[in-house]
């Protein structure tokens, strides 16, 4: 009923993507991917989220070309200026160009988000699937560890780590990652519990596969979609936590154009020169929203139960 359109009309790429009999594993995977892309295209809000994320990534990549001013150059004669042709988004309390700082700030935000995801996903997946698949005392020990981490609000936990490790962006990332993995592990474990009872896992067991092969080769691939969705949705809170740490002065340190730090320094002038705080705040809002919208769309296409 939900078979892909089988007619092989058109030529070139389209024909290749809709060929009823794929000739190589690569073509088969690309066909699956194109089907998912089709479904994503039907979801305008997810598409909007993706577009914003892509835009932010491009801005971060080409920051030196986009920025109009040196982000560290202070000009006390031009402090607290309103948006104008010379300074598109105005200047801050030290006369630095806010637009340029915002553009470079995107790099820091994405750097934090990406690095956290890279640390959190494998950690959560391995611990969650192992715990769920092995059960018994392995499960008990790992899940109690998760409980300990979950018992603290993530910002408080991150604060404690930063306080111990010292402020700085790398330490902030480690702190955020330590606070962000337990929910991922919980999710992976819950998925694993239902996956391990399924016939296809029984079937590989009956082929004589080892537990390691089953976990890595069969359980993890089934957990990945929901973990990716969860991570995308968590991106918003990761970005907010990073900004929060920056705001409290425990993340990126002052000259760095981190959005949270920018927001913090704009706080003093919020009544007189509101835009200094509003601009990085809006950037944080839009980025989190984009990740949330895209995450929702991803869930619709990746998670079979919502598909």
């Amino acid at each position: 009923m939900s078979a892909p359109p089988l007619e092989t009309s058109g030529t070139g790429l389209k024909a290749w993507l809709t060929a009823p009999i794929p000739a190589s594993p690569f073509q088969a995977r690309m066909q699956q991917l194109s089907l998912k892309w089709w479904r994503l295209k039907a979801n305008p809000s997810a598409l909007f989220g993706l577009a914003v994320i892509v835009l932010i990534v491009l801005v971060a990549l080409f920051a030196p070309l986009i920025a109009t001013h040196d982000i560290y150059a202070q000009d006390l004669g031009k402090r607290l200026m309103r948006p104008s042709a010379a300074h598109w988004l105005g200047t801050d309390e030290l006369g630095r160009d806010i637009f340029s700082r915002l553009v470079f700030g995107a790099r820091i935000t994405l750097y934090i988000a990406l690095l956290t995801a890279i640390i959190v996903a494998p950690l959560g997946l391995i611990i969650g699937t192992t715990s769920g698949y092995r059960g018994g005392w392995v499960d008990i020990v790992l899940m109690r560890v998760v409980d300990v981490f979950l018992a603290f609000p993530s910002l408080v936990l991150a604060l404690a780590f930063v306080a111990a490790l010292g402020p700085g962006i790398e330490n902030a990332i480690i702190a955020i990652a330590l606070a962000a993995w337990p929910p991922i592990a919980r999710l992976a474990r819950a998925e694993t519990l239902s996956i391990r009872k399924s016939d296809y896992i029984a079937a590989v067991r009956l082929q004589g596969a080892s537990p390691l092969r089953i976990i890595l080769g069969h359980v993890v691939p089934m957990c990945i979609p929901s973990v990716v969705v969860r991570l995308t949705l968590n991106m918003a809170s990761i970005i907010l936590t990073a900004a929060g740490l920056g705001f409290l002065g425990l993340g990126a340190q002052p000259p760095s154009p981190e959005w949270g730090a920018m927001l913090a320094s704009g706080r003093e002038f919020i009544l007189t020169n509101g835009w200094i705080a509003a601009i990085p705040g809006t950037a944080i809002l839009i980025t989190s929203l984009a990740f949330n919208l895209f995450g929702d769309g991803l869930r619709d296409i990746l998670d079979p139960r919502h598909g």
Binding site: S198, D199, Q207, G208, P304
Partner: peptide, 21 residues
């Protein structure tokens, strides 16, 4: 043992891994 004894399950919709070619 598994090399010499194999099994076919009841429900082919459940016994094949959904993401494996």
């Amino acid at each position: 043992f598994f090399r010499r004894v194999q099994m076919v399950f009841q429900d082919p919709y459940a016994s094949l891994h959904p993401r494996k070619m």
